[in-house]
Design a protein around this nucleic acid. Structure first.
Length: 491
RNA sequence: GGGGCAUUCGUCUAGCGGCCUAGGACACCGCCCUCUCAAGGCGGAGAUCGCGGGUUCGAAUCCCGCAUGCCCUACCA
């Protein structure tokens, strides 16, 4: 039976990232789906920082995780920074919980101290390979005599603790993949505690999920094999395992697990590149899930209502940035002007546009013209620069002079300048009437007249519609720019 | 090597025995709209449903084998 979220009120789910300073897109997608399940069941979304690998962990870096989650609006109910009844929420602070489980396993003989040395294990491994066998820990540490053990203790060997995996069917019902099973004899006796007494991943996760009363473990499919080990641990401890569900992995275009070489994959980078969290959420959820009909646009709230593990795909998904770009464009166009301005302003300023409060309204009018053209918020400074550049120095060669030469063009611009100066009302409609009228009097195709004006006034060939753009720029800016362009043409 | 899982247009996916001469979306191409660029509309191309066997009146859908890919196989997580 698959997990049916609607039937399981109050589920406790968790996201358990390593504190790497930022969230990987794959983890973000896992977090999203956990969040959706918690919210739709009226349950609890827990954040537990898995920092037991001291080499790679840095408590300072937790902030990056919080930032990323907050950016996506994935608020958590319990975690290192907000506390909760099942703390602590940092794995490194849960040593006692881990230790208790390890001792229980040792006491019941389900686990044993392994006094073999790394050299011995390496030698055993090589011997197996030499014999053409598959290298695998044989459990040799289990059969050491007490004399041998005493000798090693004297020699200063610190033992790890290994779990006796035994044999027999081990399995679980996966919320996405259905029933999964293997034989415990396929699993070697794995280490659950280091020589220094600290727990390793599989042990820590089991002890933590249990003690935090996690009801549903939803994580990446790279953990399905680990789940067998964990189920073994639950059984040996006499605990009922939680429900498990594994999500298909995210692959790059070469069908490999996403890595640093594949470009942006950290949430912070998406944010910096001007992606909207709404778009990232919408994109991520479709990596593995679909509603079953042809709808494609979903907000977080809509997903809370619609998402179901039952509709999650089993095949790994190849990440395609073009699709993300598409969603970004759609969500950018859906934003109302105030919201868009709020999001775009920081990018505009970071990109060098000096926009003070008095220009806020002007910025918003200009932005309205650009809205349907923005692909990423980071494009804003470049595409809107001409609105704020009072020393705009257009490259008149962009005018190209296909049908009318430089002199003719200069003359036309002079006429435009005069008309602009005398126009009673500098409005879109008035500008259009004026310019279309001029094109007709001149006998020019509208495009042939409008493009030089566009270049003069904006410095670029691709802009929002000319009349609107001129109206927003205002009469004075247009006059100055028209004059400057004409001067450049005649110099 | 062993174990686990997967395999529908380039990509994300719909499909859960007949509605499929396989649907949608992105990307691509063309046309329309048009002052440029977009957006939008319309249309096109693109999948013998990994391959081979079965089961069945009928299979993308069920079964078996093979191939390929991915994950696990650390005193990493």
């Amino acid at each position: 039976m698959r997990i049916d979220p609607t039937m399981t009120a109050g589920m406790r789910v968790r996201m358990a990232p390593s504190p790497t300073g930022d969230i990987h897109i794959g983890n973000a997608r896992t977090a999203l789906m956990n969040y959706l399940m918690a919210r739709q069941s009226g349950g609890t979304f827990i954040l537990r920082v898995e920092d037991t690998d001291r080499e790679r962990s840095d408590p300072q870096k937790e902030a990056g995780i919080y930032d990323g989650l907050r950016w996506l609006s994935l608020d958590w109910d319990e975690g290192p920074n907000v506390g909760g009844p099942y703390g602590p929420y940092r794995q490194s602070e849960r040593h006692d919980v881990h230790r208790e489980a390890i001792e229980a396993l040792l006491a019941s003989d389900a686990a044993y101290y392994d006094y073999t040395t790394a050299e011995e294990r390496a030698a055993e491994r090589e011997a197996q390979i030499a014999r053409g066998q598959t290298p695998r820990y044989s459990g040799s540490g289990r059969s050491l005599t007490s004399a041998q053990i005493a000798e090693r203790q004297a020699a200063g060997v610190v033992p790890a603790v290994r779990f006796t995996s035994g044999s027999g069917a081990v399995g679980f019902e996966d919320g996405v993949f259905g029933p999964l099973e293997t034989d415990a004899s396929e699993i070697e006796d794995f280490v659950i505690a280091r020589g220094d007494g600290t727990a390793l991943y599989n042990m820590a996760v089991v002890a933590d999920d249990r003690s935090m009363a996690i009801t549903h473990v939803v994580r990446g499919a790279d953990h399905t094999s680990n789940t067998f080990r964990q189920v073994l641990l639950y059984h040996a401890l006499g605990w009922e395992p939680p429900k498990f569900a594994h999500l298909p992995l995210l692959l790059n275009k070469r069908r490999q697990k996403l890595s640093k070489r594949d470009g942006s994959q950290w949430l912070g980078e998406y944010r910096a590149q001007g992606y909207l969290p709404e778009a990232v959420v919408n994109f991520m959820v479709f990596l593995g899930w679909s509603p079953g009909d042809e709808r494609e646009l979903f907000s977080l709230d809509e997903l809370v209502a619609e998402f179901s593990l039952r509709r999650v795909n089993r095949a790994d998904a190849v990440y395609d940035v073009q699709r993300l770009d598409h969603f970004n464009g759609v969500w950018l166009r859906r934003l109302d002007m105030n919201a868009l301005a709020e999001r775009a302003l920081p990018f505009a300023r970071d990109g060098g546009l000096s926009i003070d409060e008095s220009q806020r309204d002007y910025f918003q009018q200009a932005l309205a013209l650009e809205q349907e053209r923005i692909g990423h918020l980071s494009d804003v400074p470049d595409m809107m620069g001409f609105f704020f550049d009072d020393d705009l120095d257009p490259d008149v060669e962009l005018m190209r002079f296909k049908r009318h030469d430089r002199a003719e063009t200069a003359a036309a611009l002079a006429t435009v300048e005069g008309l602009v100066r005398e126009l009673p009302e500098f409005t879109i409609g008035a500008i259009e009437t004026m310019l279309r009228g001029l094109a007709e009097r001149l006998g020019w195709k509208t495009g042939d007249l409008f493009m030089p004006i566009r270049i003069a006034v904006t410095g670029r060939r691709a802009t929002p519609p000319l009349f609107e753009t001129m109206a927003v720029l205002g009469r004075e800016r247009c006059l100055v720019r028209l004059r400057r362009a004409r001067a450049k043409l005649t110099e």
